[in-house]
Computed example of a mutant assay.
Amino acid sequence: MLHIAICDDQQDQLAGIAAYVHEYLELDAIDAKVSLFLHPDELLTACARERFHIYILDILMPMLNGIEVGKDIRHLDKEAQIIYVTAEPSFALNAFCAHPINYLLKPIVKQQLFDSLALAVSLTDLLEEVMLAIKTKEGVHTLRICEIACCEYSHRRVIYRLINGGQLETSTLVGRFSEHIAPLLHSGYFLQPHISFAVNLRRVERFCKEHFMLRGGLTVPISKKLYSEVRDDYLNYVLGKKELL
């Protein structure tokens, strides 16, 4: 499902943009969840616990303007699509540091917003939302791969560390760890930097020679033998050269 976040500190403006977005989704029969935020802090708090594919941001907001919010979002998610909507044209050049796909002036022309949404949807890779079935002692759990921060192989079991701070542990594996995590690696969003670990590249905050540091304080070790390969794959991902499904 497509997740869209709209942030504008003016209630009437927020409602108007949301109405256009819902109209567009209905016309194109797109299954989506739309979340509304009146304050940028509320949006950034939500970003820490869930992922949005498309952001529609006002620029002139209290405490933290839309450009700074866009930078924070881009730090968290390099693939998210950002659309700016504002009454102030002078911020256009500065706004592009967050790599938005469009910059729309208020009052919003509905067709311009529709065209921007169509572009954003076309650039959004929903295959990353593929579900994994994980067999545990308690039964079978299903997860989206974007909910996984990293996973570790230990004593013939796999421990999944989740972005919400929780974890799941599989039953005893029959096959090899590399076979078990093949769907993650195939997505292009995960790397195996160590024989016993896989890491979600979206969650990486810092890359060091010995380990990845993830948001939330998790660390994932990097094997000395694999360092060069892991470094190249990570840089290709950061530079947008890694092939994603």
Rank of each mutant, 00 (worst) to 15 (best):
L2Q: 03
L2N: 01
I4C: 03
I4R: 00
I6K: 03
I6M: 05
Q11F: 08
G16A: 11
I17P: 08
I17T: 14
A18H: 13
A19R: 13
A19S: 13
Y20T: 07
V21F: 02
H22G: 00
E23F: 07
Y24V: 04
D28K: 15
A29K: 12
A32M: 04
K33R: 13
S35H: 10
H39K: 13
D41V: 11
L43Q: 07
C47G: 08
C47W: 09
E50P: 01
Y55V: 02
L57F: 06
L57D: 02
D58K: 05
D58S: 04
L60G: 04
M61R: 03
M63V: 15
L64M: 15
I67R: 12
I67S: 13
K71R: 15
D72A: 15
H75G: 07
D77N: 06
E79P: 03
I82E: 03
I83Y: 09
I83D: 05
Y84G: 10
T86A: 09
A87M: 01
A87Y: 00
E88D: 15
F91Y: 15
L93E: 10
N94I: 03
N94V: 08
A95L: 08
F96N: 02
C97F: 06
A98P: 00
A98H: 01
P100E: 07
L105M: 10
L105R: 10
P107M: 04
P107E: 04
K110D: 09
Q112G: 06
D115F: 09
S116M: 02
S116I: 02
L117V: 05
A118H: 14
A118C: 04
S122I: 01
L123K: 14
L123T: 08
L123Q: 14
L123E: 11
L123S: 08
D125W: 00
L127E: 14
E128W: 08
V130P: 00
E138M: 11
H141S: 12
L143C: 04
R144M: 12
R144S: 10
I145E: 04
C146A: 12
E147V: 02
C150D: 00
V158H: 04
Y160L: 03
I163Q: 09
N164F: 06
G165A: 10
G165Y: 01
G166V: 04
G166I: 06
G166T: 14
Q167G: 12
Q167H: 12
L168I: 08
T172Q: 14
V174S: 14
V174G: 09
G175K: 14
G175R: 12
R176N: 09
R176F: 07
S178I: 12
S178M: 09
H180P: 05
I181S: 06
I181E: 08
A182F: 02
L184P: 10
S187N: 05
S187K: 05
Y189G: 08
L191R: 02
Q192F: 00
P193W: 04
H194T: 05
F197T: 04
A198T: 05
N200Y: 05
L201E: 01
L201A: 01
R202W: 03
R202H: 12
R206Y: 10
R206W: 06
F207V: 00
K209N: 14
E210I: 01
M213E: 13
L214F: 10
L218T: 11
T219N: 10
V220T: 06
V220D: 02
I222H: 08
K224S: 07
Y227G: 13
Y227P: 13
S228H: 11
D233T: 07
L235Q: 09
L235S: 02
L239Y: 11
L239F: 09
E243N: 09
E243M: 10
E243C: 09
L245H: 10
